[in-house]
């Protein structure tokens, strides 16, 4: 995967941010760091196909994502990308199992409860299969969020601030789980964080605070 000439202009604040070019090889992991407001989440959204940048290209496996049609991009995301959000936000009307089944359904995968059960026990939350999201602790729902992101075996797994609300011990655990799942699926793991604790685990680090070329306000 590589991305270059990425620039994004925020419609509200008319503020434009430019990102450095970067190339990430298959199965390699990447850490995107930077203080709040440095544009980490925006970059993550752009890289994961959720937000069309004002300029520039994101190429994954030879496909330039933003040259795809709307439907083509939906399909590309289904097949290649899994995202763990900072706020997990499970569908509150559905149980844990149903939330995962929904992810299979939306990605046009056949419903497979075997995969769901295996994944839940790998993440140590098999006992919560029938629980509703409001019955889960933060840690539990984050694990369900990880399960949801990897259930369709994505090629790239994105995680936005996965450790921000966790103590040292739990943040270690979550990083471990993310890494395990990425390796199991032979996927790249891209984590955006401002958490210094995470840094020491990764070789590839993109520090937006240093690299970012802020162009200031444009009118």
């Amino acid at each position: 995967m590589h991305f270059f000439n990425l620039r994004h202009r925020y419609t509200r604040s008319k503020f434009t941010i430019s990102y450095p070019d970067y190339t990430l090889n298959e199965k390699e992991h990447l850490l995107i760091v930077g203080g709040s407001g440095s544009g980490k989440t925006t970059l993550l959204h752009i890289l994961s196909g959720l937000l069309k940048p004002t300029a520039g290209e994101v190429v994954i496996n030879g496909t330039s994502m933003y040259e795809l049609s709307e439907a083509g991009l939906d399909q590309f995301r289904r097949n290649h990308i899994g995202i763990v959000f900072q706020r997990v936000h499970l569908i509150s009307a559905l149980t844990v199992t149903e939330n995962l089944a929904l992810a299979q359904y939306l990605a046009k995968q056949p419903g497979n409860s075997g995969i769901i059960n295996t994944l839940l026990s790998e993440l140590g939350i098999e006992g919560k299969a029938k629980s509703y999201p409001n019955e889960l602790s933060f840690g539990e729902s984050q694990r369900v969020g990880i399960a949801r992101a990897v259930i369709n075996k994505p090629k790239i797994l994105f995680a936005d601030e996965p450790t921000s609300n966790l103590d040292d011990k739990n943040s270690e655990k979550v990083l471990m789980l993310l890494q395990q799942q990425a390796e199991k699926n032979e996927a790249s793991l891209i984590i955006a964080t401002h958490d210094e604790r995470v840094k020491r685990h990764y070789d590839n680090v993109l520090d937006l605070d240093q690299e970012m070329i802020a162009e200031g306000e444009e009118r």
Binding site: S48, L50, E70, A71, D74, Q75, R77, R78, I83, F85, H89, I91, L102, A103, L106, A107, K108, R148, N152
Partner: peptide
């Protein structure tokens, strides 16, 4: 969220 999971509009 459902869109990110691949659900179309």
């Amino acid at each position: 969220i459902m869109r990110t999971l691949g659900g179309s509009r």
